[in-house]
Simulated assay, not measured.
Amino acid sequence: MPIERDEFRDLEKEVRESKDQTILLGAKVVHLENAVKELVSKAEFFPVKLIAYGLAAGALSAVVTAVVSNVIAK
Rank of each mutant, 00 (worst) to 15 (best):
E17K: 10
V30G: 09
A52L: 14
D10I: 09
E14S: 00
E14G: 02
P47C: 08
V68L: 14
V15W: 03
G54A: 03
R16I: 12
K37Y: 06
R16W: 07
V15A: 01
K49I: 05
L32G: 08
L50F: 09
L39D: 04
A59R: 14
L55M: 06
L60Y: 10
I23M: 04
F46D: 15
L24Y: 05
D10Q: 10
K28H: 03
A66V: 11
L11F: 06
D10C: 09
V36R: 15
A27H: 02
V67W: 14
L32E: 13
K28C: 04
L50C: 13
L32W: 03
T22G: 02
E38F: 04
N34F: 06
V36L: 00
G58V: 02
G26A: 00
S69A: 13
E33P: 00
E38S: 08
T65R: 13
L32P: 04
S18F: 01
V40Q: 13
L60C: 10
N70M: 11
V15I: 07
V68C: 13
V68D: 05
L50T: 07
V36P: 01
R16G: 05
N70R: 15
A56Q: 02
K49N: 06
E33I: 08
H31M: 13
V29P: 04
A59N: 12
A56Y: 08
A35L: 12
V63L: 15
V64C: 01
S41G: 12
A43C: 05
V48K: 13
D20K: 01
